[in-house]
Design a protein around this nucleic acid. Structure first.
Lengths: 104, 104
DNA sequence: TATATAAGCAACCGATCGGTTTCGCAAATT
DNA sequence: AATTTGCGAAACCGATCGGTTGCTTATATA
């Protein structure tokens, strides 16, 4: 059951769930209302999100509120960093090229 | 065959391929040498990456060089933007809290 | 105490995934 | 012209995915 964050965000429904609970913690039933599937399907998605620690449970009576563990999202940002360096370098090179053209 | 970038980066081998060809364009054979699988398996990954336009082909004789379409990576960055706003706000709030504590 | 509600869990299903093997084709090399 | 090399395409395979249905447990409410 090797879960990682990249696999977690691969599914569009899970990305939508993430965006939903980013605003405020919600129960599975409340989340399910936003989608065209059963609560059980949502529960499965929440289990995957919980397993890779993207989401946290907060028990409150018989309700379970799921909230986004926003810090975990930074892992994606961290991975992107190596490419951000490249595209910024490219941009800079383009910029330099343009200024050279301008001078001649 | 609905391919999107999030599904493309879900696989660890594909992420490694992306990182590899980010440095310089490479042929399928050259890429395959870096992994413990067959060239055909790599070819399949390249097909998926090509389908979602993360990668471009450059034919040169009978060799095909695959190069990263770095701009496409920005789509992930764009999606992350909404969450970056949240975690920066949280950080700011924490910062304010700390300065309030300091004052008292 | 009986009933309704919130939620997790397990079994099942068709579709897709990642991989291998085999094949065919086109470009280089001999 | 014959052979080697680089590559994609297709067929196949077991594993996993996303979903449903049916069940159990625990907390509220009548």
């Amino acid at each position: 059951m090797r879960r990682d964050i990249f696999q977690a965000i691969a599914d569009p429904t899970r990305r939508a769930i993430i965006a939903l609970i980013a605003i405020q913690a919600m129960t599975p039933n409340a989340i399910a209302e936003h989608f065209d599937t059963t609560r059980q399907a949502i529960s499965k998605h929440l289990r995957i999100l919980t397993e890779c620690e993207l989401v946290e449970q907060k028990h409150q009576g018989r309700e379970i509120y799921y909230q986004l563990e926003i810090d975990k999202m930074k892992e994606i940002d961290k991975w992107l960093e190596q490419f951000r360096q490249i595209w910024e370098t490219r941009f800079q090179q383009l910029d330099e090229l343009l200024s050279i053209i301008k001078k001649t």
